[in-house]
Amino acid sequence: MRPINIGLTEEQRCSVIELLNRNLADVYLLLVKTRKYHWDVVGPQFRTLHELWQEQYEALSLHADDIAERIRALGGYPLGTVEGFLRYASIKEHPNDLPNANEMVTRLYTDYEHIVRNLRDYIAQCSERYNDEGTADFLTGLMESYEETAWMLRSFVEGEALQGSTSSSDSVNNMPAGV
Rank of each mutant, 00 (worst) to 15 (best):
L19P: 03
N21A: 10
N21M: 04
N21D: 10
A25P: 01
L29W: 00
L31M: 14
L31E: 13
K33D: 00
T34F: 00
R35P: 02
K36R: 14
K36D: 13
H38N: 09
H38G: 05
H38V: 07
V41A: 04
Q45D: 15
Q45H: 14
F46G: 03
R47A: 09
R47S: 14
T48Y: 13
L49V: 04
H50Q: 05
W53D: 01
Q54K: 13
Q54T: 12
E55V: 09
E58N: 14
A59W: 05
L60M: 12
L62A: 11
H63S: 09
H63G: 04
D65Q: 14
I67G: 02
E69I: 05
E69Q: 08
R72L: 13
G75Q: 11
G75T: 09
G75E: 04
Y77A: 10
P78N: 03
P78M: 04
L79S: 12
L79E: 13
G80N: 11
T81F: 14
T81V: 09
T81M: 07
E83N: 14
E83V: 11
G84N: 04
G84W: 03
F85W: 07
R87T: 14
E93V: 07
P95Y: 08
D97W: 08
L98M: 11
L98A: 15
A101Q: 06
N102C: 05
N102R: 10
E103A: 13
M104F: 03
M104L: 03
V105D: 03
T106N: 11
Y109K: 08
